[in-house]
Write a protein that binds this DNA or RNA. Sequence first.
RNA 1: GCGCCCAUCGUCUAACGGUUAGGACACAUCCCUUUCACGGAUGUAAUACGAGUUCGAUUCUCGUUGGGCGUACCA
Length: 489
Amino acid sequence: MLSFTKLMKQIRTRFAPSPTGFLHVGGLRTALYNYLFAKKNGGKFLLRIEDTDQNRIVEGAVENLISTLNWSGVDYDEGPYKEGDYGPYIQSQRLEIYKKHARQLVESGNAYQCFCTHERLEQVRAKQIEMHLPPSYDRLCRSLNPEQVIEKLNNNTPHVIRMKIPLIGETIFEDVVRGKVSIANKILDDQVIIKTDGFPTYHLAVVVDDHFMEISHVIRGEEWLPSTPKHILLYNFFGWEVPLFAHLPLLLNPDKSKLSKRQGDVAVEDFRAKGFLKESIINFIALLGWHPSDDREIFSFDELINEFTLERIGKSGAIFNIEKLQWLNQQHIRKLSAEEIFILLRNEFDKEGWLKYPEDYILKVINLMKERVLVLTDFVNLCKYFYEEPNSFTEESILKNWKDDTVNTIKSFVAELEKITDFTSVKIEESLKLFAVNIQVKPGIIINPLRLLISGTNVGPSVFHMAELLGKTKVLARINFGIQKLSSK
RNA sequence: GCGCCCAUCGUCUAACGGUUAGGACACAUCCCUUUCACGGAUGUAAUACGAGUUCGAUUCUCGUUGGGCGUACCA
């Protein structure tokens, strides 16, 4: 058994984003699936930064990416700031490796120098489009003889290195989620693998790195499916073992296009700022394209690791539908203790100037609101009246609960309230119900305006609990203040 | 244009070739209730279309249609 386990190759997966400034929820899902698969199988999950495009470097993007990844709980075993045996994990620091292997490909006859200028390339493409031909490189430099190449090289002519794609045959591979995928080699372009600036393109870098980092499973977005044959060809050129591929369905906008910034929030940071828990974001994106073997919907991180299999990943794109995320967020908030929620909101409360209240008081407010909150920020936006005097009253509530005779009813009830020495929710409720019976009205006739006076709104927790928490002095003061304000209207 | 991929309620999805096509979100109604929320019950709602294979197709095959992705010296 032991020897059998030893024979089995270790599972190694990676998340390989290009650092463009923020972590996309689609990216987080890709990272998550890689992470879950690795953890489920006792493997390693690594982070690699694909920064081979010098025109797109964004200051601080890597740090931001890593901090958001850390926040979400998708921790990597190897990567930047966490060097393992396969580093460096930033592609711009691996340039020599790519150059060496590109050279190797040229020597073995699987790649060639191309000296064509951008201008020529554009002309070729324009002509092809005009003639309704598929735009692709016309392979002019593929037939340069060695002397011509040496001459141009000696003249320091700028050049790129291109793959020499086989002219015939087809490339076939078995995708873990999609099954057999095949493509005719003749429709493949002679892909650039080293750019004029000496940097590799994605295609070369990804193959070289995945090989040397001993990645066993390449789990990535479906947008890579059409270029996978080029990668397979590269593996073959090098004589390397091809990893297993699993191409994930895309995350979509409501209009079914690829999830993008133009149609709302896509950055994980945005959702965090809006008061979504990491638990619910993880839970939600896990379910977008993957389904457990039963009908459960609420998952903890550990439960996801236990349940996750590549076999249960779906094939079709999934619309990122925020309503379900909100529901999940509500579910996960309810699982947290008031103390845990307080820790998450401490900074926000500080900004509001609420930390002057005893922690015990704040925790009680949280407990009162926990069941009726959708996002964390509701603990701020919907709870102001626990910390500040309401000085306005929602119009809707006034219309609904403030009738002509309300003032008199409330005024006489205030007399009852004043009598209560033990100002607890139970006592207040008793008093109010008794009073209601005496004056022969339904309790709601008193309760609703009372809530309006105390909180300024018509939604929220039990008035009795609210009143107890606020205390007799404040309650009476607010009632008096409110009566004045509403009477003068 | 060409290539690849995909197709079940509005949305996320389940269903060894045999189910009254299941669950969840959302929506609606009702119950609970002082409001909101929670909770409970009920309801509306789907196999894109057309052939074929089969005793029997959501499921397998082909075609049509629709959608997505790719087609860069971007990833």
